[in-house]
Amino acid sequence: MSLPYEHPRWHRVMGEALHPGGEALSRRLIRLCNFPPKAKVLDAGCGAGATVGLLIEEGFDAVGLDKSYDLLSKAKQKGPAVHGDLRDMPFEDGSFDGAICECVLSQQKKLSPALSELARVLKNGGILGVTDIFSLNRSYDSQGWDGSCASGARSALELHEAFTNHGFEVFFFEAYPRLLRECTAQLVWAGIIEAPIKICCSLSYGLWLCRKLGDEGSLKERYEIEGAEKAAG
């Protein structure tokens, strides 16, 4: 089965970045991640390598990973890139200071294998920057999963819980409600996808920043906030 982003005209519509928001959103994600200088950063699901190129441009020691040989051949023109699956990455534990994952988690039938691997290859305290589709009004149903990012959209709560359950602390979230509509309209206009019925109204696009927790625990665990009970009560 060919992947949706391997469609020959997908690139023409979406640009090199292949995901909603394009290069501008990738640049914002990199800036917000605030990786240390020369950090070793993984682009998990790098596609054609647009973000690998941006990371290298910013002075980071970037490596891309993708399961599409076709896209990987393009990514290798931007920088180092290796073949592999998010669910079984060919890297040692704690290999990376940071990781980026753009519109990839929604293409996973199950989040756990990919998030476990991301947690494994990141150092403690490492930053994971994610942009992806999320659902506004429904829970994820694996029965309806067909490999498309729309069918794989989780709710913001489901994503938050998944990050937390895999040892990440979410410390930043931003949503871009119009981005997905604009991107969908362009794909429909170009004849790449059928006009979705009501789907657009129930989906949005978001950016998450997570920190991999080490032995020190989360901020919530480390600090006792006085007056919290009073505020809650």
């Binding site: 509509r181 604009e182 969908t184 429909v188 206009w189 006009a195 657009c200």
Partner: peptide, 8 residues
């Protein structure tokens, strides 16, 4: 179609 998508 694109109007509907953009305008909900």
């Amino acid at each position: 179609e694109v109007e509907k998508i953009l305008e909900d």
